[in-house]
Each structure stands twice: as C-alpha cells, then as structure tokens.
C-alpha cells in the first residue's frame, strides 16, 4: 500500500494533491489518501472522486490554517503505525515546511522534489534534479519504511499508468489528536497582497523622472504633473535604485520597455540604458537643465530649464484649462 497526504486550500483539495495521487499510481494501485481537513470540508467529497482505494478524512479544526507543527504532530502516529511502503506528498511550500520534520522525527528516509518514479527489479528508483536542474540523480531509499517522497509540481500531471479504475474508495473518518503544545502557534488566514502590479507597457501617457529630481520629497511635483496629464509615473534607474519608486516603474535596459503616445522625461539626461527603454514613444518631451543632455537628441519637444520651475508651471497650465 502507498499513502498520499493531500493538501487543502480554503477547504478544497488542491490540484497538486491530484498530481501526488497520479505519482503514487506508479508505485501501487492500492492507495490510501489522507486528507487533513476540518470536519465537513468539501475536500473529502472531492477526494472520493480520485482513483484511490481509501480516503482517510483526518479531521481537526486546526487544519483550516495548519502550521507545520500541527501537520507533523497529527500525521506522525498515523504514518509510524502504517504498513505502507511509501508516503507521497506534492512538493509544495507546505510540504517543504513539515515533511522534513516528519522524516527526522520518525527516522524515515526522504527523497524530495522527484520528477520520475521507476520500479526496478527489487526496488524503486526516484529521479530528482540537482545542481539547479543541470543534472539528474537517481535515488534509492533504504532503511525502515515507509519511505517518504515528495514529487515535483507538474511532473506527474497526466502520467498515471492506465491501471484499472478501482471501485469507489472506502471512506474512514479519523479525529486527529493534536496535543495543546502543538497548537500554541496559531496561523491566521493568509492575506493576499493587494498591491497593484504596474504594467507600464499599457500606459498611453508616461511621466518619467530621473536623477535631476535630487530628493524623494520632490517627487510630488512630478506626481502632480502626471495627474494633470492622466499619465502613469515612471523613472530612470537612479530613482528606483534609491528606492524612491518601486522597481516595476523603472524604464530602460534593466527595467521595462515602453512606447506610449506621450513620454515626458523630467530631469533625465538620456543615458543609452534609459533611451533603449522608451525610444519608441510617439511624442517625447524632455525637460532638463543641461542643453547638451543626450535626451534632447531624441526628444520631439525639449525644454531647457530648471525642472523645479518648469514642472509646476506646466502642471498649472494643464490644470487651468
């Protein structure tokens, strides 16, 4: 028998768990799928649709947002008492966090991030990539079973052998026993980072600011001009390098390449590294103190002057219309 430990997200069975089941079918057709989830989760019904012999609903409220310690503590007695030859997980962030603990705690060997499984005469060969994917290593696990294996995400998508579909799986409910000590750390529900990602390539107008702005506190001037023009704000490397604007607003060879209808370059000298990122813009307006700045070679309109005078005047003229 082979055990697969599933992973749930928001009460549903994750796609990676299906991949782990597909991987397990390379080892045996007799698969027991352990689903750690709060009682009544949809994941159990979803698990019953999979080609496994048995679904173990391992139930505890802490599985809604489990910590590594909760999972390791709940699974350890189950796996230790099992007569399975192997236990499989998908190589997810969660598995990376707690499977090594289980392996160490139970003294079972672990092969991580495997991309292929092959039965040989008397054993099983697990293939994993090493050296940042440049080499592949064949791993043979020995020592007392069950042996622990995590499988690379995407490696076992549709590769399950066409074994005869088993009968409908048996369902077994097990209440997880988790001592209070393992519950001292409680995980909050995950929060999603709502920061908008910036796709400057879609912007029709861009106001870009360079080193001429001198200080972060002066950026307001440029933001006002951008607002008056209905434009996105962007920057050349020194501004992003100083952390005054995020790196996804950098234009140039090490940032984004854009071609808006209007590109206003404020205090940008026009180093070639910047030019290559914006030279396709339809209309380029440059504001710079230095009449010899290379930016004027590609600008359609050039204003030689102090940006601290020119920019507010421009903003005022645009907003008074």
């Amino acid at each position: 028998m082979v055990i697969v430990v599933a992973e749930c997200a928001s009460g549903h069975l994750s796609q990676t768990s299906r991949e782990a089941v597909a991987a397990a079918r390379h080892l045996a057709s007799d698969i027991s799928l352990i689903v750690p989830a709060p009682a009544g989760a949809d994941a159990i019904a979803e698990a019953l649709q999979l080609p496994v012999a048995e679904v173990v609903a391992l139930e505890h409220d802490a599985f809604a947002h489990p910590t590594a310690e909760v999972l390791a503590t709940a699974l350890a007695p189950l796996l230790a008492a099992s007569d399975a030859t192997h236990v499989l997980w998908a190589h997810t962030y969660q598995a990376r966090d707690y499977v090594p603990r289980l392996s160490a705690r139970l003294g079972r060997p672990l092969a991580t991030d495997c991309v292929a499984i092959e039965r040989t005469g008397d054993g099983v060969l697990f293939t994993r990539t090493i050296f940042h994917g440049r080499l592949v290593a064949d791993v043979v696990l020995d020592g007392p079973g069950p042996h622990f294996v995590t499988t690379q995400i995407g490696a076992f998508r549709d590769t399950a052998p066409a074994a005869p579909a088993p009968a409908a799986p048996q369902l077994r409910h097990v209440a997880a026993e988790i001592p209070e000590a393992a519950l001292q750390v409680r995980a909050e529900p995950p929060v999603r980072d709502v920061r908008q990602s910036t796709d400057l390539t879609q912007a029709r107008r861009i106001v870009a600011v360079g080193r001429g702005i001198r200080e972060e506190s002066h950026l307001g001037l440029v933001r006002e001009l951008a607002a008056a023009l209905g434009a996105e704000i962007a920057a050349s490397r020194p501004v992003c390098d100083a952390g005054w604007l995020p790196m996804d607003r950098q234009i140039g060879s090490s940032g984004q390449t854009v071609a808006p209808e209007l590109y206003v370059a404020v205090g940008i000298s026009g180093a070639i590294q910047h030019i290559v990122g914006m030279k396709g813009s339809k209309t380029i307006v440059a504001i710079n103190r230095d009449p010899d700045a290379p930016i004027f070679e590609i600008a359609d309109y050039g204003i030689v002057g102090d940006l601290f005078e020119v920019v507010p005047a421009l903003t005022a003229a645009l907003t008074s219309r």
Binding site: R237, C240, D241, M247, Q250, S253, S254, G255, A271, I272, Q273, V276, P294
Partner: peptide, 22 residues
C-alpha cells in the same frame, strides 16, 4: 562627442553587462 568618444555609461551599455537589480 558621442561619435568618437563616449561617456562611461554609454560604453557600459556596449559591454552588454546585466545584473539583477535587486
């Protein structure tokens, strides 16, 4: 003069050098 002689940054561009900025 940006025909025969160039500033350092322009020269660096022609080295093709790249490093992840962060």
């Amino acid at each position: 003069d940006r025909r025969l002689t160039f500033d350092r940054l322009t020269a660096v561009h022609h080295s093709g050098t790249r490093h992840r900025e962060d």
